[in-house]
């Protein structure tokens, strides 16, 4: 692995913000969407967030980001930074989190990161001191399937999960399940066992693949049926997962 040096930066590419979300971590959260992703997922629902610096997009300053959060702060449990892929702008995220931690109006808010996990250890080293929790995706335990689904190897993802769990920062792992690709009995069981070995109290969330909004190349894939969802629950619970969230 090449040496990664992450520098703090005072501005970043922000794709959007949502001041009120009940689906991006614990409680009511302000969500900051960062621009740019290092993966090219088959099932990407948000291809416009892939380019790192799209033409015409101006960087947003840390101060502007924090000002938006300050305004919503009285109603918030915390802030979640998501993407795109957050860790591509880790220096910006660190600067935003530093500012939130220092400002008495936002210091009490929990600070979460939602990432694909494809990040060097230095990234987590940089973020850990100011981060309360990380939500990661695990698309497949099998590396070949991971490459099919994301275009990238899962080695850094597995390392990130292990690293974050050891730091007590692994809040939740999301399994994006596509029928026939990564949802077989054995596949699920192995994923659960691997995750439980890393963190016996791991929280899992099932994100069923949805065709709506997916890229054209993914429109022929199947969506999990209610029976599939029931099977996921049964298999994962049977494997020993105690904290499992499925869509309502």
């Amino acid at each position: 692995m090449t040496e990664t040096v992450v520098r703090l930066v005072r501005s970043g590419f922000v794709a959007g913000t949502v001041p009120f979300s009940a689906v991006d971590g614990p409680g009511n959260r302000y969500v900051l969407f960062l621009q740019g992703c290092n993966w090219d997922c088959l099932v990407c629902h948000n291809p416009c967030s892939l380019p790192v610096a799209p033409p015409g997009m101006r960087p947003t300053s840390v101060a502007d980001v924090v000002a938006g959060i300050v305004d919503a702060a009285p109603f918030l449990t915390g802030v979640t930074v998501t993407g795109g892929e957050v860790t591509l702008q880790a220096g910006f995220v660190r600067a935003v989190f530093d500012e939130l931690a220092a400002d008495p109006r936002t210091a009490a808010l929990s600070r979460f990161v939602d990432s694909n996990g494809d990040a060097a250890p230095q990234v987590w080293e940089l973020l850990a001191p100011v981060t309360d929790g990380v939500m990661l995706d695990l698309k497949a335990l099998d590396d070949e399937m991971h490459v099919v689904l994301t275009g990238s190897s899962n080695a850094p993802v597995l390392a990130s999960i292990t690293d974050l769990a050891s730091r007590g920062l692994l809040y939740e792992v999301r399994l994006l399940l596509v029928p026939g690709l990564n949802d077989g009995h054995d596949v699920l069981r192995r994923m659960a066992r691997w995750l439980l070995a890393v963190d016996p109290a791991v929280r899992l969330r099932i994100n069923p693949f949805r065709r709506e909004g997916a890229r054209a190349c993914a429109r022929d894939l199947l969506e999990p049926s209610p029976a599939d969802l029931a099977r996921y629950r049964a298999v994962l619970t049977d494997a020993g997962v105690r904290h499992l969230t499925l869509p309502v």
């Binding site: 794709a15 969407f33 948000n46 416009c48």
Partner: peptide, 11 residues
């Protein structure tokens, strides 16, 4: 409007 969705980025 805040949550980025499919489609081109405005420029």
């Amino acid at each position: 409007d805040g949550r980025p969705a499919g489609g081109p980025v405005d420029d």
